[in-house]
Design a protein around this nucleic acid. Structure first.
Lengths: 148, 148
DNA sequence: CGCTTTTACATGCAATTGCATAGATTTTCT
DNA sequence: AGAAAATCTATGCAATTGCATGTAAAAGCG
């Protein structure tokens, strides 16, 4: 029967997850697709890409990232300078800035994304079978859900 | 029967794991235990703490971290200046630098570690039961193993 | 409605980071 | 052994980051 976890069990599960993430990241970061855009910047484009409305406030975007608010503010500036995103004041809240992908940004995100996904598959497929992938997705999904 | 995973299944599992990690990190980073030492620095002390020999080459240490080699080199400098680690040339390889925890470093790592583990438990326990923790540990462990 | 508090983003500035490279040692190869 | 290649760390330097703070707009409140 599912027992309530001990501190040790939680710590060991987290450590394993963390190490796994570091190991994956170390390999993924070096790949060619992140030559022109590093993972942090790609992550911004990726998050914008899956915005239902097509645009997002900087502050909302920031919730999904590990970087600080000032850092994101400046990254948005740089991405705009590269022509990958557009920034405009939110008409319904003059304080806020809405960011959205330009066509070039969307293209680049997709191009990098395809390579990225291919490499993820290469790294994970030897380790887990189809059922285990589903388990991992479910377990980590539960944690994310519990954090909100 | 365990099927070989599709690209999509791998991508979804990875995305779920990644999001989970970001969510956890965002919460953990802000906590009081990382006021005097940020997570990256703590991670260095943590890795040194579990070195069987008590010390590690910078380059070996670097394998477990996401930061670059020059960045670790300078972080070691700063940690030494804070009296948390010691650095000495590896007698068996004059190029290498062995880093080890000082007593103060070990104490600080343990003190932070206790709080950290407590908070990890607080975040994870509502999400997963004991058996699920074990599953998560095993799945992520398999991935880490496959990466080597 | 005025006044305080909160929220959202930008900016000054010092600290940290990564890239490219150098310096020193070890390893490999012939 | 001797030359060439690989390995390990350090450093110059520009770019990025975070912290503290500033500015402007919105929300809350008596």
């Amino acid at each position: 029967m599912p027992d309530t976890p001990t501190v040790r069990e939680a710590a060991e599960a987290w450590e394993a997850l963390f190490r796994c993430q570091v190991g994956m990241m170390r390999r993924l970061q070096k790949l060619a697709e992140f030559k022109e855009l590093n993972m942090r910047e790609y992550d911004v484009l990726f998050n914008l890409g899956r915005c239902p409305s097509g645009s997002s406030r900087l502050s909302d975007l920031n919730e999904h990232l590990l970087i600080s608010q000032p850092s994101l503010s400046r990254m948005a500036e740089r991405l705009e300078a590269k022509g990958l995103v557009e920034r405009r004041t939110d008409p319904s809240d003059q304080r806020a800035v809405l960011v959205s992908l330009t066509d070039a940004g969307r293209d680049l995100q997709r191009r990098i994304g395809r390579e990225h996904v291919r490499h993820i598959h290469e790294l994970l497929a030897p380790a887990l079978d189809s059922g285990e992938m589903a388990q991992l997705k479910e377990l980590t999904g539960k944690i994310s859900a519990a954090l909100d």
